[in-house]
Design a protein around this nucleic acid. Sequence first.
DNA 1: AATTATTTGTCCGTATGTATG
DNA 2: CCATACATACGGACAAATAAT
Lengths: 242, 242
Amino acid sequence: MPKNLSEQLLHELGSSIVQGERKPGELLPKVETLSEMKGVSRTVVRETMKGLSARRLIESSTRTGTVVRDREAWLWWDPDIISWAAAAEENQSFLMQLTEVRLAMEPAAVKLAAKNADEEDIATIRHRFDLLEQSVDNEDDWVEADAAFHEAILHASHNELMQSLIQTLQEGLYQSRHTTMRMLQRAGDNSRKMALDLHRDVMTAVIEGKEDEAMARMETLLHTVSHLLKEYEAEVKKEAPN
Amino acid sequence: MPKNLSEQLLHELGSSIVQGERKPGELLPKVETLSEMKGVSRTVVRETMKGLSARRLIESSTRTGTVVRDREAWLWWDPDIISWAAAAEENQSFLMQLTEVRLAMEPAAVKLAAKNADEEDIATIRHRFDLLEQSVDNEDDWVEADAAFHEAILHASHNELMQSLIQTLQEGLYQSRHTTMRMLQRAGDNSRKMALDLHRDVMTAVIEGKEDEAMARMETLLHTVSHLLKEYEAEVKKEAPN
DNA sequence: AATTATTTGTCCGTATGTATG
DNA sequence: CCATACATACGGACAAATAAT
């Protein structure tokens, strides 16, 4: 639930643009008109416009009005834009793109972690892994512990930009998939036990400072999880087709 | 040159936060005071605050006032934040982080390009390479043609998120280094001829759809360029130490 | 080529709501 | 209950740019 009028309107217009309802080149109604249409003051409309143009979704010029910009200009790594795109009806392609980025970044981050982790980082990682191990039988705990473990690894990379990037895309993936993810967790203890081993492998490589091995093992982990996920989705689809 | 008052103030306050002048936890002056200090209306100050909190640099709460948020919360992939950070006095660490991300993303993008490029993409890449080849003797043309070539490759990845990401970080790197980059261009034709061969290798792998080879060759290219750059910087430093 | 009309851009004053000490 | 300090919202006034006449 949006807190104020301009955020509400921002969400409404932003979604309609990102989800393709309003297309690049299209002219938006003028401020005065929008103000009347939505029953808000010009100030609110103007703040909304400011938010949209800060994300480079629109471009305004005097007399001509305000038009939707080309997709190439959009600041895709804005959390709002990602969430709007992930919430779209036809978002398969977008989710795939997010996954492709993740597959490039997470292994790179782990490689850095293997290189840069200090004693404190390693202590945290060990601790988080213990928690993961203990929560292997509980769905909710597992999801939380898994996120915490990955967060500790990322933190050990000592690269704030990567952390921020991965966190943003995780949120994007999570948002549209959290039900699916939970379902995977429910798929059975076997999946979790297998995943636990893979996590341990990553951790060991990081602690021992074996960069390339850490990277390769993270790739294995991601591919395995994605494979499990697909398998499970196919199964669910078979049982209950659209 | 910032166009308006709120952007001017946004730049001023944003820079002071990102560059560490105002530290996390620190309390900002209240709106009224800032308004007087800077000689602008409260509306301008409020718009500035909106811009800062949209980037999650600050957090406001009633009565307590407005405080600087922890670095982890910042939206690092905002072009403004990147440019403020890149312009900082002590930015060695930040530039290294940017480079680390680039080293992870560009090869991944090329790999995708080798997989996804269609005929039109390939025609464009070939054309851009021809331009690159023709501009091997001209500094200014080379810089432009080089950017255009990389852009064509990225476009062929058919992943808008990666494109946007790489473009943003390129701008960040460019901004603080453009003089250095130009100097590398001036370093001599040999560097450019060597670089040209490396570009051709990448192009060939993409056209032939050899994913892993394209990726490996882009890694080689990036490492070579970065090596040349370091060498040249060292030389310049030797001639004219601080 | 000059003028006019339209639309966005900018700044301001003011008022109300809300949470805090 | 009161004073403080910020958030939100409204609408007026004028400036600047530019398409249309």
